[in-house]
Simulated scan of single mutants.
Amino acid sequence: MLVDDAVALVPSIPGRRALLGLAGPPAAGKSTLARRLVSGVNHRLGAGTAAYVPMDGFHLANAQLDRLGLRGRKGAPETFDVDGYVALLRRLRGERGRAVYAPDFDRRLDEPVAAGLVVLPEARLVVTEGNYLADDGPGWTSVRDLLDDLWYVEVPRELRERRLLRRHVRGGRSERDARAFIATSERPNARRIERSRAFCSRVVSPGE
């Protein structure tokens, strides 16, 4: 079970914290798996041992995307604050004596929410997930250097795109607009992410 492997990453030395990353294309099930791993570790080792911090909180705000002319590319690497995400990972590695706050992402608002999450001092494992954790573009390679392990989450493309269609329609897009966004943004992003598989230690399925 993947939970067993996550438990094995938890440091036995007091004062240390491990970071597990989950990379993969949109709607592969990264957040579902991350929450399951955190829940499983906490069940085994005690509440608060593991915490979940998604990369999605580092989406640029829609106002910034509009300013940059990138609203139609939302979800591409350049639409994230990678430097802010790297700085957070460094804090999570280095700060154990105080709470670390992190941004979350509200899908209803389609916007990041400042300090929506907290990692408490007792957390010894942080599971983080996002599309570009294994990317080799500017800024993103620093992410890999800060992770103790990095897994690639994969499901069939047809399943992912059905999930994406439901997600975008629920978020307020018409079916036509949702399909167009998948074709022009989500699908090219997924192809780029798939090329980063080689930088991950293993390929996993959310159902494992």
Rank of each mutant, 00 (worst) to 15 (best):
V53T: 05
G48N: 08
L133E: 03
A63H: 10
A102N: 05
D135N: 15
D56L: 00
M55P: 05
L120Y: 15
V86G: 05
Y52W: 15
G75T: 01
P112M: 01
A47N: 08
R124Y: 09
M55K: 06
E122M: 12
P121A: 13
V113I: 13
P112T: 02
G137F: 11
V53L: 03
L125S: 08
G48W: 04
P54R: 02
P103A: 08
T32I: 04
G57E: 02
L22Q: 00
G21I: 10
A18C: 11
G57M: 02
P14W: 13
G130D: 08
V53C: 12
G15H: 13
V127M: 09
Y101S: 11
D56T: 00
R73H: 14
P112Q: 01
L45C: 10
V126D: 02
G46W: 07
G94V: 06
A61F: 09
F58C: 04
V113P: 05
A102W: 06
R91P: 05
V100S: 06
A51G: 02
G84T: 06
L20C: 05
N42L: 06
D83N: 14
E129G: 03
Y85W: 14
D66N: 12
P77A: 15
F80C: 05
L88C: 11
K30E: 00
Y132A: 02
L109R: 15
P26F: 00
G84W: 13
S39P: 02
G24C: 01
R124W: 10
P25C: 02
G94T: 14
V82F: 11
R35A: 12
G40V: 09
V82N: 02
L22Y: 01
V86E: 05
V119F: 14
L65M: 12
D83F: 13
G84D: 10
L60P: 05
H43Y: 06
E95W: 11
L92K: 01
F58M: 03
R17K: 13
R71C: 04
S31C: 01
E78Q: 15
L22S: 02
D83T: 13
R73V: 03
M55F: 09
G48H: 11
R16T: 08
D81G: 09
A123C: 07
A47F: 13
V119K: 05
L88F: 10
R67F: 08
D106W: 12
A34R: 09
V86P: 04
L9W: 12
L133C: 08
A115R: 15
G48T: 07
F105I: 04
L37K: 10
D136C: 07
D83Y: 13
T49E: 04
N42V: 10
V113E: 09
L92P: 03
V100H: 06
A51S: 15
A50M: 08
R108W: 06
D81A: 11
L70C: 01
